[in-house]
Structure formats: structure tokens, C-alpha cells
Simulated scan of single mutants.
Amino acid sequence: MKLAIYGANGYQGKLVLAEAVRRGLDVVLVGRDITRLRGAAAVVGLSGADVRPAAVDDHDALVAAFREADAVVNCAGPFTPTGAAVVLAAIAAGRHYVDTAGEQPYIKEIFDTFGAEAEAAGVTVVPAANDACVPVDLIAGLLAARLGPLEEIAGVHVITGGGGPSRGTLRSVIESMDIIKAGGLVYDDGDWRAGLPARHTSIILLGGSEAVPVATFPLPEVVTIPRHVQVRHVEGLVEAALSAQLSDPIDPEIIARLPEGPTEEGRRTQRFTYVIDAVAADGRHGRGVVEGPDTYGTTAVIAVESARRLVTDPAKPGVLTPAQAYDATGFLNFLVPHGVHWTIEEDTPGN
């Protein structure tokens, strides 16, 4: 199997490349700078790597490069200004597509724009194949299967350690600044809306005794969950302090002078906890929890596995959520040896 990795020379792209090589997959490195692509190949020990220069605005070059592979993994953020062109090229090449995006407006745009084209081409597109959206979306589906129709889902992200975000993440924050300041899209009564007040202002984490203040935030799973779960209200939340920090303007010149991303040691110290609280229409409660290390490394594992599964165990064509494309329990259990642990409990107290 061969994966085309677009943006293989970026911080996240190099981690995805290393994971693909570790798993014995063939790769095509695609991007606009052939020198940087060759440098990325050298880092993971690829001599004579298949390198295909293609700028994001060169549709023909992208299509030609993607046709050399079985599936495309797009790691080139920010995705809001460029991601749609890569999706379009993957569809034109007849190749399944995943990306590592976390930008909520972009993810919604892909669902709203490319479903019919992907279906007609026999291609499956799964945006947001990252450390958070995939496991959270899968667990939301499992909760709904247990609880039935839901009144609401509240997803909460808590991340500690890690040495700070990558330059690419910070540039994606800039692209999403308006929606971050508005608290992100919230799904409510059949549509996605901005500016709705949060239903939850604090959460008690597993094993904790004190409430953690939270605020609404544009999380990817707010876009994906309502597409496969019967639910009236879905909101995404992060710690209030993080929301306030990311709502401050970031100078692009400062970002350019920062390290490309956290060091290996920094990534080893990082931990994430994603909580999915669900309330059924009949009042029952359920909670899913995903815990693990290293958001960037885990994203690499998830992105490669997401693309691999589309090739070896095809889903229906179209733009799909993770829960629509993959077997939830099978994928979640695949992540356990990589340090990601998940639990689901029913009838937990509300927060």
C-alpha cells in the first residue's frame, strides 16, 4: 500500500511520514518545496524517496501525484485557505482522503461542499482524522447506541504539558480567530449556530473533586457528531483559561521565529483527556473518556490508520465522519497499544 502525504515536510507531516514508514507502508511525499521534501525523507531514512513537487494551486500536479498512491493524507495546515483544493484533487484522482485538520469551519465546509462529488467518484473523504475528533466521534456513536436518542452531548478537551503548540497549529488558530472568539459553532435543534451561550460552565473530570471552569470552543466533533447521532444539542468546550489564551491575537512574525513544534521530550510529557458527556431524551446520562499521550504523535498514528482502513476495508463513498467510516470498537481498541485508553459509563451524574 502506498500513501501520498501532502505537506510531508511540515511538523505534523514528518510525524505522519515517520509513522507510515514505521508501519512498512510505501509513501509519496508531496508538497511545494522539493528540497524540504527530500530533507523530510532523509530524516526517516528514505533514500531515493518518491518525491512529487506540487503547489496547492497546481491542480494537475496534485492529481498526478495522488494517482501514484492508494490514499491521500493531507497534513498541510492551515487548512481553511488551502484544504479544499487538496480534497478536490484527491477526488479527481479517485483516491480516498483523510486530513489532520482541527479547524471547525473548514471541516464543515468539506461536508457541505464535497459529498456529492466524492460519492460520484467512489471516493471516501474523512476530514479531521486527528487525536481528538476520531476517538470522540467514535465514542459518541457508541454512547448513542446505548442510550438512544439524545438531548445533548458536551465534549470537553483538557490538555496538559507538551511544550506548546506547533507553528502550524498557531497559524490555524489565526485562521479561526473569529470563530474562536465567538465560541465556535454549536449544534442546536437541527442546525449549526454561532454565538450561543454555553450550557455548561464547569466540569468535574474523572477522579477529580473540583469543578474545572470551561468555555465553548470550535471543536471538530461538533460538526461530525450530529451527522450520525440523533441529538438536539452538541457543544464543544475547553478549559476557560486556554480559551482566553487562544482568543488573544497572535503576531505572525512572532510565530515564524518560534520552534517548528514541541521537542520529543515535550511531547512525551503531554497528556490529553477528552470527555464526552451525553444526556438521553429520557434523562439517563452517559460519559465517555479518552486519555492518552502526545497529541501530535497520536494524530500521526490515527491519520495513517484512518487512510489504511479506507483502502483495506472500504467505507461507502462520500464525505463521512469517523463513526460512519470505521468500526468504532475496533478502531478504539487499535489505539490502546499506543497509550490511548477509553471508557464508557452509563448513568453518571450530570455536571
Rank of each mutant, 00 (worst) to 15 (best):
2 K>L: 02
3 L>T: 04
6 Y>I: 04
7 G>H: 12
8 A>L: 02
13 G>D: 07
13 G>C: 05
16 V>L: 07
16 V>T: 15
17 L>V: 09
18 A>C: 07
23 R>K: 14
26 D>S: 15
27 V>M: 13
28 V>H: 03
31 G>T: 04
32 R>I: 13
36 R>F: 06
38 R>A: 14
40 A>W: 11
47 S>F: 08
47 S>E: 15
48 G>Q: 09
48 G>P: 08
51 V>L: 06
53 P>A: 09
59 H>N: 06
63 V>W: 06
70 D>P: 00
70 D>Q: 12
70 D>K: 05
71 A>C: 09
73 V>W: 07
76 A>D: 10
77 G>N: 06
78 P>T: 10
79 F>V: 06
86 V>P: 02
86 V>G: 05
91 I>V: 14
91 I>T: 02
96 H>E: 04
97 Y>P: 01
98 V>H: 06
99 D>N: 09
101 A>P: 02
112 D>Q: 13
113 T>I: 04
114 F>E: 03
115 G>T: 12
115 G>A: 12
116 A>V: 14
121 A>Y: 10
123 V>D: 03
129 A>F: 07
132 A>N: 12
135 P>Q: 14
138 L>Q: 07
147 L>S: 01
148 G>E: 05
150 L>G: 01
151 E>M: 10
160 T>H: 07
161 G>M: 11
162 G>K: 04
163 G>T: 07
167 R>C: 11
168 G>E: 14
179 I>M: 07
183 G>H: 05
183 G>E: 00
192 W>R: 10
196 L>M: 14
198 A>D: 03
200 H>D: 08
213 P>A: 09
213 P>R: 09
216 T>N: 13
218 P>S: 08
218 P>Y: 11
221 E>P: 04
221 E>Q: 14
231 V>E: 01
235 E>S: 12
240 A>C: 00
251 D>P: 04
253 E>W: 01
259 P>H: 05
260 E>Q: 12
268 R>Y: 02
270 Q>F: 01
271 R>T: 14
280 A>C: 00
281 A>D: 14
282 D>C: 09
282 D>S: 09
287 R>S: 07
287 R>G: 07
287 R>V: 10
290 V>T: 15
290 V>P: 01
291 E>I: 14
292 G>R: 04
301 V>R: 05
304 V>G: 03
311 V>R: 03
312 T>H: 11
315 A>E: 04
318 G>K: 05
319 V>G: 08
326 Y>W: 15
327 D>T: 12
331 F>I: 06
333 N>I: 03
333 N>K: 15
337 P>H: 08
340 V>L: 03
342 W>V: 13
344 I>R: 01
344 I>D: 04
